[in-house]
């Protein structure tokens, strides 16, 4: 993958997000969950959004399908998926987009499946709605999907209720449901977090294989650097509602530029010496109800300077396909050349 941020990319992007902001308003406070996020995903590309809880990664994903409660949420910016302006769609076109063009996999497969229907019925319902299929045709397709996601004895599992399946099988059923109408974009919201470590790897491998076979653009949200390195083509690191660093996965892992990414790497176990202490990033993320004026990572940053408190750092491109938002970036580059 030659992921690039430059506008002269040769393939038209599948997803283009420009300056997305999401605010939740309640009587008590306004929470700025996403503060000006821009990125694009090409067909067949996997973008991993990496960040800790509350960094706005799931909110970004849900905003892309307009799944956030409409009354309390203000979304600004532009979301374009396959040429459609998502924020401008009417209710009918939005329903066609959801599940048809774009599908989502959720974190907890137990609560994301309706407990009163068999998993087969739920897939058949979606197929009949989007594809106007007959009951028999939809069932045959559901069976194919179950075989595709490698569910053992699929015929029997179609008639199982969610509580009768194990966590891994449930997540596979959820994936089959998401894939049922052949989406061009798959949004995965921490789909492996709730699973056992061994099952996690199986599901990741399955997702990677399906994504390649079906050529789906995928946005994968996770807080797990290991998972991200396993599945991503590119990584976008999110902090306090902003993308602070973005680039190809190998580059970012080998050479993180932003102090937050560096901190994340240092606080993850990946073959350090067994006696070496694991460094945690000191402090905690900013209060999203009262965002600091300058760099949101400033208060926790080991290299913070006075100007970091004045404005959010501008975008800089250390190389053609990388993006970092840190004041130090340009200077360090100058200093090292």
């Amino acid at each position: 993958m030659d992921g690039t941020l430059m506008p002269q990319a040769d393939i038209a992007p599948l997803v283009e997000i420009e300056d997305l902001t999401v605010r939740f308003t309640s009587r008590e406070a306004t929470v700025s969950a996403v503060n000006g996020v821009s990125f694009s995903v090409k067909p067949g590309e996997v973008l991993c959004i990496l960040g800790e809880s509350g960094s706005g990664k799931s909110v970004t994903l849900r905003a892309m399908m307009r799944l956030l409660p409409e009354k309390r949420t203000t979304i600004t910016g532009r979301i374009t998926i396959a040429g459609q302006d998502v924020l401008g769609l009417n209710a009918r076109d939005l329903r066609a987009l959801r599940g048809g063009l774009v599908s989502m996999i959720f974190q907890e497969p137990m609560t994301a499946l309706d407990p009163v229907y068999t998993v087969g019925e739920q897939i058949i319902e979606t197929l009949r709605k989007h594809r106007n299929m007959s009951r028999e045709g939809a069932r045959a397709r559901a069976l194919d999907l179950f075989e595709l996601v490698k569910i053992p004895s699929p015929e029997r599992r179609l008639d199982s209720y969610p509580h009768e399946l194990s966590g891994g099988l449930r997540q596979r059923a959820m994936i089959a449901m998401a894939l049922s109408c052949g989406p061009r974009l798959l949004l995965a919201d921490e789909p492996t977090t709730a699973l056992d470590a061994t099952v996690q790897i199986q599901v990741l491998i399955l997702l990677r294989r399906l994504q390649r076979e079906l050529g789906m653009g995928t946005i994968f949200v996770t807080h797990d650097l290991g998972v991200a390195s396993e599945i991503a083509d590119r990584i976008a690191v999110m902090y306090a509602g902003r993308i602070v660093e973005e680039g190809p996965v190998a580059d970012i892992l080998a050479n993180p530029r932003h102090p937050y990414t560096q901190g994340l790497m240092a606080s993850t176990v990946h073959g350090q010496h067994r006696d070496a202490d694991i460094q945690a990033i000191p402090g905690s993320p900013p209060d999203l109800r009262r965002m600091p004026a300058g760099c949101s990572f400033g208060p926790r940053c080991p290299t913070s300077q006075p100007r970091c408190r004045e404005a959010f750092p501008p975008i800089s491109h250390p190389s053609a396909d990388r993006m970092v938002r840190c004041f130090r970036e340009g200077e360090e580059a100058k200093a090292s050349f």
Partner: peptide, 13 residues
């Protein structure tokens, strides 16, 4: 519950 969101996400009215 997430399944309500999941249904909406699959295009249910």
């Amino acid at each position: 519950r997430e399944f309500v969101l999941a249904c909406a996400g699959l295009g249910a009215s």
